[in-house]
Design a binder for these strands. Sequence first.
DNA 1: AAGATCATTCTTGTATCCATAATGGGACTG
DNA 2: CAGTCCCATTATGGATACAAGAATGATCTT
Lengths: 243, 243
Amino acid sequence: MPKSGPSSHPAGLIEEIAEKIHARIISGDYKPGERLKQDLLAEEFGVSRTPIREALSKLDARGIVRLEMRRSATVSVPSPREVREMYQVRAELEGLAAELAAEWINDAKLRALEAAHEAFVKAATKLRAAKTARSRESALPKLSLDWIGTNEVFHQCIVEASGNSALARVLREVSAGYVRNLMLSSAAETNVLRMESNVASHAAILAAIREHDPARARAAMVGHIREGGDFVAAWFERRQVKS
Amino acid sequence: MPKSGPSSHPAGLIEEIAEKIHARIISGDYKPGERLKQDLLAEEFGVSRTPIREALSKLDARGIVRLEMRRSATVSVPSPREVREMYQVRAELEGLAAELAAEWINDAKLRALEAAHEAFVKAATKLRAAKTARSRESALPKLSLDWIGTNEVFHQCIVEASGNSALARVLREVSAGYVRNLMLSSAAETNVLRMESNVASHAAILAAIREHDPARARAAMVGHIREGGDFVAAWFERRQVKS
DNA sequence: AAGATCATTCTTGTATCCATAATGGGACTG
DNA sequence: CAGTCCCATTATGGATACAAGAATGATCTT
Protein backbone atom coordinates (compact mmCIF):
# COMPACT_ATOMS: atom_id res chain seq x y z
CA MET A 1 0.00 0.00 0.00
CA PRO A 2 1.48 3.35 -0.98
CA LYS A 3 1.71 6.14 1.50
CA SER A 4 -1.41 8.19 1.39
CA GLY A 5 0.26 11.24 -0.05
CA PRO A 6 3.40 13.23 -0.51
CA SER A 7 2.20 15.99 1.76
CA SER A 8 1.76 16.68 5.41
CA HIS A 9 0.49 13.99 7.71
CA PRO A 10 -1.57 15.07 10.62
CA ALA A 11 -2.56 11.45 10.11
CA GLY A 12 -4.22 11.66 13.41
CA LEU A 13 -7.31 11.45 15.46
CA ILE A 14 -8.87 14.48 13.84
CA GLU A 15 -8.92 13.07 10.35
CA GLU A 16 -10.22 9.78 11.66
CA ILE A 17 -13.07 11.46 13.47
CA ALA A 18 -13.85 13.63 10.48
CA GLU A 19 -14.16 10.52 8.35
CA LYS A 20 -16.38 8.82 10.87
CA ILE A 21 -18.72 11.77 11.13
CA HIS A 22 -18.78 12.03 7.39
CA ALA A 23 -19.60 8.36 7.05
CA ARG A 24 -22.51 8.74 9.43
CA ILE A 25 -23.82 11.68 7.49
CA ILE A 26 -23.65 9.75 4.23
CA SER A 27 -25.24 6.72 5.81
CA GLY A 28 -28.09 8.88 7.02
CA ASP A 29 -27.52 8.58 10.75
CA TYR A 30 -27.27 12.33 10.90
CA LYS A 31 -29.95 13.84 8.74
CA PRO A 32 -29.71 16.99 6.65
CA GLY A 33 -30.27 20.13 8.67
CA GLU A 34 -29.68 18.34 11.92
CA ARG A 35 -27.62 20.24 14.45
CA LEU A 36 -24.47 18.46 15.50
CA LYS A 37 -23.68 19.34 19.09
CA GLN A 38 -20.08 19.03 20.03
CA ASP A 39 -20.83 17.53 23.43
CA LEU A 40 -22.82 14.69 21.97
CA LEU A 41 -20.26 13.93 19.30
CA ALA A 42 -17.54 14.02 21.92
CA GLU A 43 -19.35 11.47 24.02
CA GLU A 44 -20.25 9.42 20.97
CA PHE A 45 -16.62 9.02 19.99
CA GLY A 46 -15.22 8.93 23.47
CA VAL A 47 -12.99 11.96 23.08
CA SER A 48 -13.14 15.53 24.23
CA ARG A 49 -14.60 18.43 22.32
CA THR A 50 -11.25 19.68 21.11
CA PRO A 51 -10.64 17.14 18.32
CA ILE A 52 -14.33 17.25 17.48
CA ARG A 53 -14.06 20.95 16.83
CA GLU A 54 -11.14 20.52 14.49
CA ALA A 55 -12.86 17.69 12.66
CA LEU A 56 -15.96 19.81 12.17
CA SER A 57 -13.81 22.61 10.85
CA LYS A 58 -12.37 20.28 8.23
CA LEU A 59 -15.81 19.03 7.30
CA ASP A 60 -16.91 22.62 6.90
CA ALA A 61 -14.06 23.24 4.48
CA ARG A 62 -15.21 20.20 2.54
CA GLY A 63 -18.76 21.46 2.44
CA ILE A 64 -20.18 18.59 4.43
CA VAL A 65 -21.33 20.60 7.39
CA ARG A 66 -22.08 24.26 7.73
CA LEU A 67 -20.34 26.09 10.51
CA GLU A 68 -21.69 29.47 11.50
CA MET A 69 -20.48 31.71 14.24
CA ARG A 70 -21.74 30.76 17.69
CA ARG A 71 -24.15 28.23 16.25
CA SER A 72 -24.10 24.48 16.12
CA ALA A 73 -22.72 22.81 13.05
CA THR A 74 -25.55 21.78 10.77
CA VAL A 75 -25.49 18.77 8.50
CA SER A 76 -25.46 19.87 4.93
CA VAL A 77 -26.04 16.87 2.74
CA PRO A 78 -25.64 18.10 -0.79
CA SER A 79 -28.46 18.00 -3.25
CA PRO A 80 -27.96 15.83 -6.31
CA ARG A 81 -27.21 19.04 -8.10
CA GLU A 82 -24.39 19.82 -5.73
CA VAL A 83 -23.03 16.33 -6.17
CA ARG A 84 -22.94 16.96 -9.87
CA GLU A 85 -21.19 20.26 -9.31
CA MET A 86 -18.59 18.61 -7.17
CA TYR A 87 -17.92 15.99 -9.77
CA GLN A 88 -17.64 18.67 -12.40
CA VAL A 89 -14.87 20.26 -10.37
CA ARG A 90 -13.23 16.95 -9.77
CA ALA A 91 -13.40 16.08 -13.46
CA GLU A 92 -11.65 19.31 -14.27
CA LEU A 93 -8.89 18.73 -11.77
CA GLU A 94 -8.30 15.09 -12.53
CA GLY A 95 -8.48 15.89 -16.22
CA LEU A 96 -5.65 18.32 -15.72
CA ALA A 97 -3.78 15.67 -13.77
CA ALA A 98 -4.14 13.17 -16.59
CA GLU A 99 -3.05 15.73 -19.15
CA LEU A 100 0.05 16.59 -17.18
CA ALA A 101 0.78 12.96 -16.44
CA ALA A 102 0.66 12.10 -20.13
CA GLU A 103 3.15 14.85 -20.77
CA TRP A 104 5.60 14.29 -17.94
CA ILE A 105 5.35 10.75 -16.65
CA ASN A 106 8.61 8.83 -16.28
CA ASP A 107 9.28 5.12 -16.51
CA ALA A 108 9.10 4.38 -12.81
CA LYS A 109 5.76 6.12 -12.36
CA LEU A 110 4.41 4.56 -15.49
CA ARG A 111 5.26 1.12 -14.17
CA ALA A 112 3.59 1.99 -10.89
CA LEU A 113 0.51 3.13 -12.75
CA GLU A 114 0.42 -0.05 -14.78
CA ALA A 115 0.72 -2.11 -11.63
CA ALA A 116 -2.12 -0.13 -10.08
CA HIS A 117 -4.25 -0.77 -13.13
CA GLU A 118 -3.55 -4.48 -13.00
CA ALA A 119 -4.50 -4.60 -9.36
CA PHE A 120 -7.71 -2.75 -10.16
CA VAL A 121 -8.59 -5.14 -12.96
CA LYS A 122 -7.95 -8.07 -10.68
CA ALA A 123 -10.08 -6.63 -7.91
CA ALA A 124 -12.87 -5.86 -10.35
CA THR A 125 -12.77 -9.37 -11.74
CA LYS A 126 -13.02 -10.93 -8.33
CA LEU A 127 -15.81 -8.64 -7.26
CA ARG A 128 -17.71 -9.33 -10.43
CA ALA A 129 -17.37 -13.05 -9.90
CA ALA A 130 -18.63 -12.71 -6.37
CA LYS A 131 -21.55 -10.57 -7.46
CA THR A 132 -22.69 -12.88 -10.22
CA ALA A 133 -22.21 -15.95 -8.04
CA ARG A 134 -24.33 -14.40 -5.30
CA SER A 135 -22.71 -16.70 -2.81
CA ARG A 136 -24.05 -15.55 0.51
CA GLU A 137 -21.08 -15.90 2.73
CA SER A 138 -18.46 -14.62 0.30
CA ALA A 139 -16.54 -11.71 1.69
CA LEU A 140 -18.32 -9.30 -0.58
CA PRO A 141 -17.68 -6.28 1.63
CA LYS A 142 -13.98 -6.99 1.60
CA LEU A 143 -13.95 -7.30 -2.17
CA SER A 144 -15.86 -4.05 -2.50
CA LEU A 145 -13.30 -2.41 -0.31
CA ASP A 146 -10.53 -3.77 -2.49
CA TRP A 147 -12.25 -2.44 -5.54
CA ILE A 148 -12.59 1.02 -4.04
CA GLY A 149 -9.05 0.93 -2.74
CA THR A 150 -7.38 -0.08 -5.97
CA ASN A 151 -9.46 2.45 -7.83
CA GLU A 152 -8.23 5.14 -5.51
CA VAL A 153 -4.64 4.04 -5.93
CA PHE A 154 -4.96 4.25 -9.69
CA HIS A 155 -6.26 7.80 -9.57
CA GLN A 156 -3.68 8.79 -7.02
CA CYS A 157 -0.89 7.43 -9.19
CA ILE A 158 -1.97 9.70 -11.99
CA VAL A 159 -2.16 12.71 -9.74
CA GLU A 160 1.29 11.96 -8.46
CA ALA A 161 2.63 11.42 -11.95
CA SER A 162 1.34 14.85 -12.90
CA GLY A 163 4.11 16.28 -10.78
CA ASN A 164 1.88 19.09 -9.56
CA SER A 165 1.82 18.98 -5.79
CA ALA A 166 -0.67 21.82 -5.47
CA LEU A 167 -3.09 19.82 -7.56
CA ALA A 168 -2.56 16.81 -5.35
CA ARG A 169 -3.26 18.84 -2.25
CA VAL A 170 -6.43 20.38 -3.61
CA LEU A 171 -7.81 17.04 -4.65
CA ARG A 172 -7.02 15.49 -1.31
CA GLU A 173 -8.47 18.36 0.60
CA VAL A 174 -11.72 19.04 -1.14
CA SER A 175 -12.85 16.03 -3.00
CA ALA A 176 -10.99 12.83 -2.34
CA GLY A 177 -12.42 12.07 1.07
CA TYR A 178 -15.85 12.93 -0.11
CA VAL A 179 -15.71 10.59 -3.01
CA ARG A 180 -14.37 7.74 -0.93
CA ASN A 181 -17.21 7.92 1.54
CA LEU A 182 -19.78 8.15 -1.19
CA MET A 183 -18.38 5.12 -2.90
CA LEU A 184 -18.34 3.15 0.29
CA SER A 185 -22.06 3.62 0.54
CA SER A 186 -22.96 3.18 -3.08
CA ALA A 187 -20.59 0.34 -3.93
CA ALA A 188 -23.16 -2.23 -2.91
CA GLU A 189 -25.49 -1.06 -5.63
CA THR A 190 -22.84 -0.84 -8.29
CA ASN A 191 -23.71 -3.31 -10.95
CA VAL A 192 -21.59 -5.39 -13.24
CA LEU A 193 -22.07 -3.13 -16.23
CA ARG A 194 -20.73 -0.13 -14.45
CA MET A 195 -17.74 -2.05 -13.21
CA GLU A 196 -16.86 -3.11 -16.71
CA SER A 197 -17.26 0.42 -17.99
CA ASN A 198 -14.93 1.58 -15.26
CA VAL A 199 -12.29 -0.93 -16.18
CA ALA A 200 -12.52 0.09 -19.83
CA SER A 201 -12.19 3.77 -18.93
CA HIS A 202 -9.13 3.13 -16.85
CA ALA A 203 -7.57 1.15 -19.66
CA ALA A 204 -8.19 3.99 -22.11
CA ILE A 205 -6.70 6.53 -19.75
CA LEU A 206 -3.68 4.38 -19.13
CA ALA A 207 -3.15 3.88 -22.86
CA ALA A 208 -3.32 7.61 -23.56
CA ILE A 209 -0.83 8.34 -20.81
CA ARG A 210 1.51 5.60 -21.97
CA GLU A 211 1.48 7.05 -25.47
CA HIS A 212 2.06 10.58 -24.13
CA ASP A 213 -1.13 11.93 -25.62
CA PRO A 214 -2.18 14.71 -23.21
CA ALA A 215 -5.37 15.76 -24.97
CA ARG A 216 -6.67 12.23 -25.20
CA ALA A 217 -5.72 11.47 -21.62
CA ARG A 218 -7.60 14.50 -20.41
CA ALA A 219 -10.67 13.74 -22.47
CA ALA A 220 -10.73 10.13 -21.30
CA MET A 221 -10.36 11.15 -17.68
CA VAL A 222 -13.00 13.84 -17.85
CA GLY A 223 -15.42 11.41 -19.43
CA HIS A 224 -14.63 8.79 -16.83
CA ILE A 225 -15.23 11.11 -13.91
CA ARG A 226 -18.40 12.54 -15.44
CA GLU A 227 -19.74 9.03 -15.85
CA GLY A 228 -19.02 8.29 -12.22
CA GLY A 229 -20.63 11.57 -11.24
CA ASP A 230 -23.80 10.73 -13.10
CA PHE A 231 -24.00 7.40 -11.34
CA VAL A 232 -23.42 8.81 -7.89
CA ALA A 233 -25.83 11.67 -8.44
CA ALA A 234 -28.48 9.24 -9.58
CA TRP A 235 -27.86 7.02 -6.59
CA PHE A 236 -28.15 10.09 -4.43
CA GLU A 237 -31.47 11.01 -5.92
CA ARG A 238 -32.86 7.58 -5.26
CA ARG A 239 -31.59 7.59 -1.73
CA GLN A 240 -33.02 11.02 -1.07
CA VAL A 241 -36.56 10.14 -1.96
CA LYS A 242 -36.26 6.83 -0.15
CA SER A 243 -35.35 8.27 3.24
CA MET B 1 -18.43 46.03 -0.38
CA PRO B 2 -19.99 42.71 -1.27
CA LYS B 3 -20.17 39.95 1.24
CA SER B 4 -17.12 37.77 1.00
CA GLY B 5 -18.96 34.70 -0.20
CA PRO B 6 -22.21 32.83 -0.45
CA SER B 7 -21.11 30.10 1.92
CA SER B 8 -20.46 29.54 5.57
CA HIS B 9 -19.02 32.32 7.68
CA PRO B 10 -17.06 31.34 10.68
CA ALA B 11 -15.84 34.88 10.02
CA GLY B 12 -14.08 34.67 13.29
CA LEU B 13 -10.89 35.02 15.15
CA ILE B 14 -9.41 31.90 13.61
CA GLU B 15 -9.62 33.11 10.06
CA GLU B 16 -8.29 36.48 11.09
CA ILE B 17 -5.29 34.93 12.78
CA ALA B 18 -4.70 32.62 9.85
CA GLU B 19 -4.56 35.60 7.54
CA LYS B 20 -2.18 37.45 9.82
CA ILE B 21 0.21 34.54 10.06
CA HIS B 22 -0.02 34.08 6.34
CA ALA B 23 0.78 37.73 5.75
CA ARG B 24 3.83 37.50 7.95
CA ILE B 25 5.05 34.48 6.09
CA ILE B 26 4.65 36.20 2.76
CA SER B 27 6.31 39.34 4.04
CA GLY B 28 9.25 37.27 5.16
CA ASP B 29 8.92 37.76 8.92
CA TYR B 30 8.73 34.02 9.29
CA LYS B 31 11.29 32.41 7.03
CA PRO B 32 10.94 29.14 5.10
CA GLY B 33 11.66 26.12 7.23
CA GLU B 34 11.27 28.07 10.43
CA ARG B 35 9.42 26.32 13.18
CA LEU B 36 6.33 28.14 14.35
CA LYS B 37 5.83 27.46 18.01
CA GLN B 38 2.30 27.79 19.18
CA ASP B 39 3.27 29.47 22.43
CA LEU B 40 5.12 32.24 20.70
CA LEU B 41 2.35 32.85 18.20
CA ALA B 42 -0.16 32.86 21.03
CA GLU B 43 1.76 35.54 22.85
CA GLU B 44 2.40 37.43 19.63
CA PHE B 45 -1.31 37.76 18.92
CA GLY B 46 -2.46 38.01 22.50
CA VAL B 47 -4.66 34.93 22.42
CA SER B 48 -4.39 31.43 23.75
CA ARG B 49 -2.99 28.47 21.86
CA THR B 50 -6.39 27.08 20.96
CA PRO B 51 -7.28 29.45 18.12
CA ILE B 52 -3.66 29.39 16.99
CA ARG B 53 -3.88 25.66 16.52
CA GLU B 54 -7.00 25.90 14.43
CA ALA B 55 -5.50 28.64 12.33
CA LEU B 56 -2.40 26.54 11.71
CA SER B 57 -4.61 23.67 10.69
CA LYS B 58 -6.25 25.85 8.08
CA LEU B 59 -2.91 27.09 6.84
CA ASP B 60 -1.81 23.49 6.53
CA ALA B 61 -4.80 22.72 4.36
CA ARG B 62 -3.82 25.67 2.20
CA GLY B 63 -0.27 24.42 1.91
CA ILE B 64 1.26 27.41 3.64
CA VAL B 65 2.64 25.56 6.61
CA ARG B 66 3.45 21.92 7.07
CA LEU B 67 1.92 20.20 10.04
CA GLU B 68 3.32 16.86 11.06
CA MET B 69 2.30 14.74 13.97
CA ARG B 70 3.76 15.87 17.28
CA ARG B 71 6.07 18.32 15.56
CA SER B 72 6.02 22.06 15.28
CA ALA B 73 4.43 23.62 12.26
CA THR B 74 7.09 24.55 9.77
CA VAL B 75 6.84 27.44 7.36
CA SER B 76 6.59 26.12 3.88
CA VAL B 77 7.05 29.01 1.52
CA PRO B 78 6.51 27.54 -1.88
CA SER B 79 9.22 27.47 -4.46
CA PRO B 80 8.59 29.45 -7.62
CA ARG B 81 7.77 26.12 -9.17
CA GLU B 82 5.06 25.51 -6.61
CA VAL B 83 3.67 28.97 -7.21
CA ARG B 84 3.42 28.10 -10.85
CA GLU B 85 1.70 24.84 -9.98
CA MET B 86 -0.80 26.64 -7.83
CA TYR B 87 -1.60 29.08 -10.58
CA GLN B 88 -1.99 26.22 -13.00
CA VAL B 89 -4.65 24.79 -10.75
CA ARG B 90 -6.27 28.13 -10.30
CA ALA B 91 -6.26 28.75 -14.04
CA GLU B 92 -8.04 25.47 -14.55
CA LEU B 93 -10.70 26.22 -11.97
CA GLU B 94 -11.32 29.80 -12.96
CA GLY B 95 -11.30 28.75 -16.59
CA LEU B 96 -14.10 26.37 -15.80
CA ALA B 97 -15.89 29.15 -13.95
CA ALA B 98 -15.65 31.45 -16.95
CA GLU B 99 -16.85 28.71 -19.28
CA LEU B 100 -19.86 28.01 -17.11
CA ALA B 101 -20.56 31.67 -16.59
CA ALA B 102 -20.60 32.29 -20.34
CA GLU B 103 -23.10 29.49 -20.67
CA TRP B 104 -25.43 30.25 -17.80
CA ILE B 105 -25.15 33.87 -16.73
CA ASN B 106 -28.37 35.80 -16.35
CA ASP B 107 -29.06 39.50 -16.79
CA ALA B 108 -28.70 40.49 -13.18
CA LYS B 109 -25.36 38.79 -12.75
CA LEU B 110 -24.14 40.13 -16.05
CA ARG B 111 -24.93 43.65 -14.93
CA ALA B 112 -23.11 43.01 -11.66
CA LEU B 113 -20.13 41.74 -13.58
CA GLU B 114 -20.12 44.77 -15.83
CA ALA B 115 -20.26 47.04 -12.80
CA ALA B 116 -17.36 45.16 -11.27
CA HIS B 117 -15.39 45.59 -14.45
CA GLU B 118 -16.06 49.30 -14.54
CA ALA B 119 -14.94 49.66 -10.95
CA PHE B 120 -11.79 47.75 -11.77
CA VAL B 121 -11.02 49.96 -14.76
CA LYS B 122 -11.56 53.03 -12.66
CA ALA B 123 -9.31 51.77 -9.89
CA ALA B 124 -6.63 50.83 -12.40
CA THR B 125 -6.77 54.23 -14.01
CA LYS B 126 -6.37 56.03 -10.73
CA LEU B 127 -3.56 53.78 -9.64
CA ARG B 128 -1.77 54.25 -12.93
CA ALA B 129 -2.08 57.98 -12.64
CA ALA B 130 -0.65 57.89 -9.16
CA LYS B 131 2.21 55.66 -10.23
CA THR B 132 3.24 57.77 -13.17
CA ALA B 133 2.91 60.98 -11.18
CA ARG B 134 5.17 59.58 -8.49
CA SER B 135 3.63 62.03 -6.07
CA ARG B 136 5.10 61.04 -2.76
CA GLU B 137 2.27 61.59 -0.40
CA SER B 138 -0.48 60.24 -2.64
CA ALA B 139 -2.38 57.47 -0.97
CA LEU B 140 -0.72 54.88 -3.15
CA PRO B 141 -1.28 52.03 -0.71
CA LYS B 142 -4.96 52.74 -0.63
CA LEU B 143 -5.16 52.81 -4.40
CA SER B 144 -3.27 49.52 -4.59
CA LEU B 145 -5.74 48.05 -2.18
CA ASP B 146 -8.60 49.28 -4.31
CA TRP B 147 -7.03 47.73 -7.35
CA ILE B 148 -6.63 44.38 -5.63
CA GLY B 149 -10.12 44.57 -4.18
CA THR B 150 -11.91 45.38 -7.40
CA ASN B 151 -9.92 42.72 -9.18
CA GLU B 152 -11.05 40.19 -6.64
CA VAL B 153 -14.66 41.27 -6.96
CA PHE B 154 -14.51 40.80 -10.71
CA HIS B 155 -13.21 37.27 -10.41
CA GLN B 156 -15.67 36.48 -7.69
CA CYS B 157 -18.56 37.68 -9.81
CA ILE B 158 -17.60 35.22 -12.50
CA VAL B 159 -17.32 32.37 -10.06
CA GLU B 160 -20.71 33.22 -8.69
CA ALA B 161 -22.21 33.52 -12.14
CA SER B 162 -20.96 30.03 -12.92
CA GLY B 163 -23.63 28.76 -10.58
CA ASN B 164 -21.35 26.04 -9.26
CA SER B 165 -21.14 26.38 -5.51
CA ALA B 166 -18.63 23.58 -5.11
CA LEU B 167 -16.30 25.43 -7.44
CA ALA B 168 -16.74 28.58 -5.41
CA ARG B 169 -15.89 26.76 -2.22
CA VAL B 170 -12.80 25.12 -3.61
CA LEU B 171 -11.45 28.37 -4.93
CA ARG B 172 -12.10 30.13 -1.66
CA GLU B 173 -10.57 27.41 0.38
CA VAL B 174 -7.41 26.55 -1.45
CA SER B 175 -6.37 29.43 -3.57
CA ALA B 176 -8.17 32.68 -3.03
CA GLY B 177 -6.61 33.63 0.25
CA TYR B 178 -3.23 32.71 -1.00
CA VAL B 179 -3.51 34.85 -4.04
CA ARG B 180 -4.76 37.82 -2.11
CA ASN B 181 -1.83 37.81 0.25
CA LEU B 182 0.64 37.39 -2.57
CA MET B 183 -0.82 40.30 -4.43
CA LEU B 184 -0.73 42.51 -1.38
CA SER B 185 2.99 42.06 -1.28
CA SER B 186 3.74 42.22 -4.95
CA ALA B 187 1.34 45.02 -5.90
CA ALA B 188 3.93 47.66 -5.16
CA GLU B 189 6.16 46.30 -7.89
CA THR B 190 3.41 45.89 -10.42
CA ASN B 191 4.17 48.17 -13.28
CA VAL B 192 1.96 50.10 -15.62
CA LEU B 193 2.29 47.66 -18.47
CA ARG B 194 1.02 44.79 -16.43
CA MET B 195 -1.91 46.80 -15.20
CA GLU B 196 -2.93 47.62 -18.73
CA SER B 197 -2.58 44.03 -19.78
CA ASN B 198 -4.80 43.04 -16.89
CA VAL B 199 -7.48 45.51 -17.86
CA ALA B 200 -7.41 44.24 -21.42
CA SER B 201 -7.70 40.63 -20.28
CA HIS B 202 -10.67 41.42 -18.10
CA ALA B 203 -12.35 43.22 -20.97
CA ALA B 204 -11.82 40.22 -23.24
CA ILE B 205 -13.23 37.84 -20.65
CA LEU B 206 -16.23 40.05 -20.06
CA ALA B 207 -16.90 40.28 -23.80
CA ALA B 208 -16.76 36.52 -24.24
CA ILE B 209 -19.13 35.99 -21.34
CA ARG B 210 -21.51 38.64 -22.58
CA GLU B 211 -21.64 36.97 -25.96
CA HIS B 212 -22.17 33.56 -24.37
CA ASP B 213 -19.04 32.08 -25.89
CA PRO B 214 -17.89 29.46 -23.35
CA ALA B 215 -14.79 28.29 -25.17
CA ARG B 216 -13.48 31.78 -25.70
CA ALA B 217 -14.29 32.80 -22.14
CA ARG B 218 -12.36 29.86 -20.82
CA ALA B 219 -9.38 30.46 -23.06
CA ALA B 220 -9.26 34.13 -22.15
CA MET B 221 -9.47 33.38 -18.46
CA VAL B 222 -6.85 30.67 -18.54
CA GLY B 223 -4.49 32.97 -20.39
CA HIS B 224 -5.16 35.76 -17.95
CA ILE B 225 -4.44 33.66 -14.90
CA ARG B 226 -1.35 32.11 -16.45
CA GLU B 227 -0.03 35.58 -17.16
CA GLY B 228 -0.58 36.58 -13.56
CA GLY B 229 1.06 33.36 -12.44
CA ASP B 230 4.16 34.08 -14.47
CA PHE B 231 4.43 37.52 -12.96
CA VAL B 232 3.98 36.35 -9.40
CA ALA B 233 6.38 33.45 -9.88
CA ALA B 234 8.99 35.79 -11.28
CA TRP B 235 8.48 38.21 -8.40
CA PHE B 236 8.86 35.29 -6.07
CA GLU B 237 12.13 34.26 -7.62
CA ARG B 238 13.54 37.74 -7.25
CA ARG B 239 12.43 37.95 -3.66
CA GLN B 240 13.88 34.55 -2.85
CA VAL B 241 17.39 35.38 -3.91
CA LYS B 242 17.14 38.79 -2.28
CA SER B 243 16.35 37.51 1.20
C1' DA C 1 -55.69 34.68 24.48
C1' DA C 2 -51.77 36.21 21.81
C1' DG C 3 -47.60 38.56 21.61
C1' DA C 4 -43.61 40.48 23.47
C1' DT C 5 -40.04 40.69 26.87
C1' DC C 6 -37.02 38.99 30.14
C1' DA C 7 -34.65 35.36 32.70
C1' DT C 8 -32.81 30.79 32.53
C1' DT C 9 -30.36 27.28 30.32
C1' DC C 10 -27.63 25.38 26.99
C1' DT C 11 -23.87 25.50 23.75
C1' DT C 12 -20.19 27.37 21.76
C1' DG C 13 -15.56 29.87 21.90
C1' DT C 14 -11.40 30.56 24.49
C1' DA C 15 -8.22 29.74 28.19
C1' DT C 16 -5.80 26.72 31.18
C1' DC C 17 -4.00 22.18 32.57
C1' DC C 18 -1.87 17.58 32.15
C1' DA C 19 0.29 13.67 29.90
C1' DT C 20 3.23 12.20 26.28
C1' DA C 21 6.42 12.37 22.58
C1' DA C 22 10.38 14.84 20.50
C1' DT C 23 14.67 17.55 21.13
C1' DG C 24 18.89 18.98 22.73
C1' DG C 25 22.64 18.76 25.78
C1' DG C 26 25.69 16.41 28.70
C1' DA C 27 28.11 12.55 30.23
C1' DC C 28 30.27 8.37 29.31
C1' DT C 29 32.89 5.31 26.46
C1' DG C 30 35.73 3.63 22.69
C1' DC D 1 38.69 13.56 20.70
C1' DA D 2 34.60 11.89 18.53
C1' DG D 3 30.56 9.26 18.63
C1' DT D 4 26.71 7.52 21.08
C1' DC D 5 23.41 6.84 24.51
C1' DC D 6 20.44 8.66 28.04
C1' DC D 7 18.01 11.94 30.64
C1' DA D 8 16.07 16.63 31.40
C1' DT D 9 13.64 20.08 29.02
C1' DT D 10 10.25 21.59 26.16
C1' DA D 11 6.39 21.77 23.03
C1' DT D 12 2.42 19.48 21.26
C1' DG D 13 -2.13 16.93 21.51
C1' DG D 14 -5.94 16.28 24.10
C1' DA D 15 -8.91 17.15 28.41
C1' DT D 16 -10.98 20.16 31.45
C1' DA D 17 -12.65 24.66 33.07
C1' DC D 18 -14.73 29.06 32.48
C1' DA D 19 -17.01 33.04 30.20
C1' DA D 20 -20.10 34.87 26.91
C1' DG D 21 -23.73 34.66 23.41
C1' DA D 22 -28.00 32.27 21.51
C1' DA D 23 -32.20 29.61 22.02
C1' DT D 24 -36.00 28.61 24.78
C1' DG D 25 -39.56 28.96 27.81
C1' DA D 26 -42.20 31.34 31.26
C1' DT D 27 -44.50 35.35 32.68
C1' DC D 28 -46.60 39.68 32.22
C1' DT D 29 -49.21 42.94 29.61
C1' DT D 30 -52.65 44.50 26.44
